[in-house]
Write a protein that binds this DNA or RNA. Sequence first.
DNA 1: TAGGATTGCAA
DNA 2: TATTGCAATCCTA
Length: 486
Amino acid sequence: MAKFYDTLIWEYIRDPWVRWLALDKLASKYFDYEMISYKNVTNNKKLSFEEVDLLVAADYSVEDVYITNKLYEKQKKDWIINNKILYDIEIPLIEVLKDMEISWVKINRDILKWIWILLENEILRLKKEIFSLAWEEFNIKSPKQVWEILFIKLKLPKGKKTKTWWSVNSEVLLNLKKEFPIAESIVKYRHFSKLLSTYVYGLINLLDEEDLVHTSYNSTVTSTWRLSSTNPNLQNIPVWEWIASQIRWAFVSRWNKGKILALDYSQVEVRLLAIMSKDKNLINAFKNGFDIHNKTWEFIFWKKEITWSERKIAKAVNFWVIYGISAFWLNKMINSWVKEAWIYINKFYENYSKVKDFFDKTIKKAEETWYVETMFWRKRYIKWITDRNTLIKKIAEREAINMPIQWTSADIIKIAMIEVAKMMKKNKLKSKMIMQVHDELVFDVFLGEEFFLKKEVKKIMENILKDTPIKLKVDIWEWYNWWETK
DNA sequence: TAGGATTGCAA
DNA sequence: TATTGCAATCCTA
């Protein structure tokens, strides 16, 4: 039995789409009661809480406790949520997240400084280049000024629109790069500026004296029951491009001769699709160790070697099959290659027929019960799936398809985190679980624990689902503190 | 000074 | 070509 309980989490499990989930909002929603605001008590945050008059502070605090308890009593009376989700997943997760937050993450300041210099030089060079191409100086970070230079002064062809005006984002600019080198330079400039301000300055500013950085994990924010991370957001650290990937190297082990270990689920969504739909072709594809994307291309195009544009279509098909198509793109079906892709989607369904059946069944069940659920019976109500408006119904259908797969994977990693934390405690490991990035767990490994930890964590992660025709697959990435390896 | 708009990073 | 989140910056109210 859990040692603690959380009223916000209860509400969040019931409906993750509530914006601004907070005690005062719930008090007014359920009890039509307006709570004393923190702003009022602290004189618009001019006072710190210690400076607040004792009696005022007491009133404020007691009210918090009183309302929380009242909320708890109310929730106990109408158990309309899945207790297993609450007591087996979300509540035990609180402690795991707490431990991860107080473990902190060690950052190597020197690596960041080195990247800083690298980026500053590049930015300066690009700045000069852009100004000479534009024949004047302007603020490259201002979309409005970029727009003026490119479309008014240099008369470049306009691309797509934003809400209010012509867009100058990288997609638009890269379409212009062949004829207009200034466009590409602006994209590069923005890319490097982004890295410098968000990931280098941003990270360095948040370091303490020991070069440790602290993040906050929020478990009641996203509408998909995934976690989110703030101050800094450790879930969007760059990986792909070279300079960007150097930033990952700045995440180092705090231990002498320690190492960083990252274990991530490989293609969870597609594997879950195979498991949940029980489609033989898809299952066999995984059993034979084929890359699923390759297999899809084979099915769609009936050949092993494919061109770049065919690859693009195959990728789109995979996305669409897993996530469904958005209302926006549904309306855009006129677009030629989109239309073409639609034909391929149907080909995909022909070859993976059980997948189609699975989707049809999910939608049908949702129409009857007004909800969809994950493999762990986490439910979400989508009443608008029976709406007369076709567009609204289509949106609901897309959610119905997407939800069981994507949200099951959110459950899986949460369960894995709880199990891993238990295992580490039981074996009194010194290593620490330091990050979670949606389908990846990152550890700071103490010398000597590496082999055991790798083996055990992999085992736990791959075996969250029992008795399935194929297992989940976990890939391992590891890196030493490079200056210690020489 | 607050907040909308734009942009871009991750999964 | 999905979706959701976080954050930096610009710029207007």
